[in-house]
């Protein structure tokens, strides 16, 4: 019998798959307590590298045409579809039933399609031309906030992550995401999908590890412009909000609550894009 090749689950930073610089790991267990993987226990330095990569990628990504960003999100949907079996398998090993896993992967694939379609439309919904009293063409356009820190919910580990990353990046932000601590496997495989879907290096960075360590570092980082606390444990949210004030971070929280993450009518909307946007108003002179 052939011995199978095991996969080492690594971080995804700046388009590459480094192991954590700390050389440390934590054990990811399956439902029956069996060892699934030694996942990277991301360090503060890893997180800093990720923020740096995200900052570096911001200008290029936010400067792409809306059409182009849409194309890349569509491509993400296609690759998720074609690698569905692998994602389903990882979700099952992490404890989902086959049906749950299939539903989750289908929902997140559709979620990419949904947000891909918004790329060249949300500015039309949220922008405005403002009738001011004077010879100025005055308009307001949404612009990305910058580097967004996303704390993914524990479950659904993959759909939750995609649901929070997609509205951030479709709007031109770059992301540093902390993956589900208990179920990081499929999330890390998602990194491979980003890497092979024309998403430029640094636009999405994925860090696995212990949330008690990673979240306060992310919240305190002075070059992170917004933080999505959806996956922050309730007991820690207040502390994150407090730390976020240090550089006036925008704090965004999505409570899927009873609605459930796969209910498309509530858990996806252009208002989720709006949460990671700044409104810029321009007074342009009118004259001969």
């Amino acid at each position: 019998m052939r011995l199978n090749v095991r996969k080492t689950y690594k971080l995804y930073i700046n388009g590459e798959f480094p192991r954590t610089e700390s050389g440390r790991f934590y054990a990811v267990k399956g439902k029956g307590g069996e060892l699934l993987a030694n996942a990277c226990r991301g360090s503060r330095k890893d997180l800093r590298n990720a923020v740096q990569a995200a900052r570096k990628a911001f200008s290029g990504w936010s400067g792409k045409t809306a059409f182009n960003r849409g194309q890349i999100l569509y491509r993400l949907a296609e690759v998720c579809e074609s690698r569905a079996a692998e994602l389903v398998d990882e979700l099952r090993r992490q404890g989902s039933t086959a049906a749950e896993a299939r539903r989750e992967v289908a929902a997140l694939t559709d979620r990419w399609v949904y947000y891909a379609g918004w790329s060249d439309k949300y500015p039309q919904v949220f922008g405005s031309v403002n009738p001011v009293a004077g010879p100025y063409y005055n308009f307001t356009v949404p612009e990305p906030t910058g580097v967004v820190g996303v704390v993914a919910p524990e479950e659904p580990s993959l759909l939750g992550l995609v649901s929070r990353i997609a509205p951030a990046i479709v709007g031109g932000n770059t992301v540093v995401a902390i993956t589900s601590e208990s179920r990081p496997l499929a999330a890390i495989t998602l990194g491979e999908i980003f890497e092979t879907s024309d998403v430029p290096a640094g636009v999405v960075n994925l860090i696995s590890g212990l949330k008690t360590e990673l979240v306060p570092w992310l919240a305190a980082h002075m070059d992170v412009n917004a933080i999505d606390t959806t996956g922050v444990p309730d007991v820690a949210i207040s502390a994150v909000q407090k730390t976020a004030a240090e550089n006036v971070k925008r704090v965004v929280h999505f409570n899927a609550g009873k609605i459930g993450w796969d209910d498309a009518t509530r858990s996806q909307s252009p208002y989720a894009i709006f949460d990671f946007q700044e409104m810029k108003t321009v007074w342009h002179p009118i004259g001969m």
């Binding site: 403002n130 009738p131 009293a133 100025y136 307001t140 409104m279 007074w283 342009h284 002179p285």
Partner: peptide, 14 residues
């Protein structure tokens, strides 16, 4: 952003 002007305000302008 004000272009060729400055400190203009209007209730319709965010």
């Amino acid at each position: 952003i004000w272009a060729n002007t400055y400190n203009k305000f209007d209730p319709a302008s965010p």
